[in-house]
Design a protein around this nucleic acid. Structure first.
Length: 170
DNA sequence: CATCAAAAACTCC
DNA sequence: GGAGTTTTTGATG
């Protein structure tokens, strides 16, 4: 079922993120498109006032995170997914700024210590990167694991927080 | 609607 | 390096 999603570009020093808002809140957030292909954004004129408010909060939080500071305000997130995914995302949101967690930790936090792989899948299905600190989730080895939005982004975001990655060598 | 099969950003031995 | 556990998603009958 396709809801009416309003796509609004969030301009940050690191690029132009694309935020998707539903009638309930922020439901999707994408990294800037490579290749200069700007996504088609909804016309500002038809965007409800509340969505503009959400977007202000989103953009502010985004900028703060990119600047290496904890966001003060979060927009309402309209997380759509399975129960498992919601659980994982909620656990992700509990991660404090500057802190990192492993997939195993998340798995244990939601009561499925063996479901680390499923957690990885849920994180991969995370519709809202950065706002949901999926980039703060590392593998148990302290490795970066992977990242759908691009490993460079994960690396950059973690570097902003002063987190050292053991990307060195094999 | 129920069942089968494959895949996923991992972890342990 | 290989095997294991859990969940999600799409196709098939």
């Amino acid at each position: 079922m396709k809801k009416t999603l309003f796509k609004i570009p969030a301009v940050t020093p690191d690029g132009e993120f694309l935020a998707g808002y539903s009638e309930n809140g922020l439901t999707e957030l994408s990294f800037p498109h490579p290749g200069g292909r700007s996504a088609r954004a909804a016309k500002k004129e038809i965007i409800p006032a509340k969505m503009r408010g959400w977007h202000a909060a989103t953009e502010a939080a985004l900028k703060k995170i990119l600047a290496g500071r904890a966001p003060v305000k979060f927009p309402p997130l309209d997380l759509v997914g399975t129960d498992f995914q919601k659980k994982v995302w909620h656990a992700l949101r509990k991660i404090s700024f500057g802190q990192t967690k492993s997939y195993g930790k998340i798995a244990r936090a939601i009561g499925r210590p063996k479901a680390v792989r499923a957690v990885g899948g849920a994180c991969g299905a995370n519709p809202i990167p950065v706002l949901i600190p999926c980039h703060r989730v590392l593998a148990a080895n302290g490795k970066i694991g992977g990242f759908s939005g691009g490993l460079e982004w994960k690396r950059r975001l973690l570097a902003r927080e002063g987190i050292c990655l053991s990307v060195g060598g094999s």
